[in-house]
Write a protein that binds this DNA or RNA. Structure first.
Lengths: 246, 246
DNA sequence: GAGTGGTCTAGACCACCAA
DNA sequence: TGGTGGTCTAGACCACTCT
């Protein structure tokens, strides 16, 4: 159990961050200063700092320094039982904005048809939304709706679900009720993983921040799926809350 | 938007992994081979591989090679409405084992008293469990029970909740019911972050795997908290599932 | 311009694993 | 024993931010 130099340096810095010597928003010493302090080469210091960055404790910024991240600011709460008002902070405020960036019909992949319990190669409506909070995209919402459900909605409401430029007259769950396919239950399954570079770019994630990934299947009163979704959200800005009876 | 060499190498390898050239369980080319192929120095290749490791795509193993991770094996499902049978795979099998590693009374920190809605500096029973699956610890469960609830349970059942060597006669929620503090609802809030080194060690997490963090508050029929918990679970082996009415 | 972090080199030695 | 990844050096140049 020999301790390497960069492990010793990263442990030292981690302890200083946790004991408040370097509070959130402040900067840890610069790389040349740490080289001097520990008598090591540049890349050894960078290895140590990279470890902390991958733990989500710090964010190195070119030309500025390596700043300590505030990890206590997960304020946003997602509640599955409030479809019309999807996100609310503890103050109850609404989400900042919400934009459909892609919509159209396509032949569903096999995992999607499995969740929707429709035959393989069925046509489905595929929509991608970006949900913003505080100027940043906090969650990517990808949604698939079976052909017959989507058409029933359009017939009943006159909206075009594949038009990303015209907003819907009401929220989708209300439209489903109007069309006789009112959602009764949602089943959500959540895990987490590291983002791929595309997701990190869209969500503006610093290194060391994972994404929360949630699969949702919405069913009507007969237990038939009327919609399925995948949510990919920034874990440093998002938490999910559920209250269920025991 | 200049692309650096290690970015080009990591993008190349990422594409090969995603298109199946290097399937899960196989190895990507060795560092000397990549140095030769791209005509770069060792550390440039290591930067590229480190990126993939931090994305959770590969795990470098000393003396063996850099193996591609299988990211499709999140089978375990946690259901909050099944306290006695906390984990079940889709087949419905029970968890492998479950061990209380620490238990005792302590004066609660302010965040805990806030969750439990008891006065500051109250005595609480603090228990830490390690929940195993497939030989590995998949989740760390830390639990706090108010003094009056814990004592009522002990008086009613004769069990010693602070003894880590004697297992309880029944599960804790059943015991609460016996003691007249039957849980009625649980509120769970979930987010994710990267593990600290201790958590990574206990959960045997490879680089690039986050932890799912869930706070739970359990309330009795009168809405009073009878228990609060924090779960820290390996996100590559754990998912949480909720079904709620809309 | 001065200071920050980012990239990259060429070479060395170490720790670990499999045959 | 030979191949793997891990650590570390000393030095160079680049990209970026702030004053």
């Amino acid at each position: 159990m020999t301790t390497t130099r960069h492990q010793a340096i990263s442990r030292h810095l981690r302890e200083r961050i946790q004991d408040g010597t370097y509070p959130p928003g402040s900067k840890i010493p610069a790389i040349p200063a740490l080289m001097e302090e520990f008598g090591v080469a540049r890349d050894t210091v960078r290895d140590a700092v990279a470890r902390l960055a991958n733990e989500g404790l710090v964010t190195p910024l070119q030309g500025i320094g390596t700043v300590v991240r505030d990890t206590t600011n997960v304020e946003m709460v997602y509640r599955p039982d409030r479809p019309a008002q999807i996100w609310s902070a503890q103050t109850g405020e609404q989400e900042d904005s919400d934009r459909v960036v892609q919509a159209g019909w396509e032949t569903a992949a096999s995992d999607i048809t499995g969740w929707l319990q429709v035959p393989d190669r069925t046509q489905v409506l595929h929509r991608i939304r970006h949900q913003r909070k505080g100027g940043q995209i906090a969650q990517i919402h990808e949604q698939w709706i079976p052909d017959h459900v989507a058409r029933a909605i359009q017939d009943a409401t006159g909206d075009d679900l594949a038009d990303i430029n015209r907003p819907l007259s009401t929220d989708l769950f209300s439209q489903m009720r109007t069309a006789g396919n009112g959602p009764a239950t949602v089943t959500e399954t959540t895990t987490a993983r590291m983002p791929d570079p595309d997701e990190a770019s869209v969500l503006e994630l610093p290194p060391g921040v994972p994404v929360l990934v949630t699969w949702r299947v919405t069913r009507n009163g007969q237990g038939q799926p009327v919609e399925t979704s995948v949510f990919v959200g920034a874990a440093d800005r998002l938490s999910q809350s559920y209250t269920v009876p025991v």
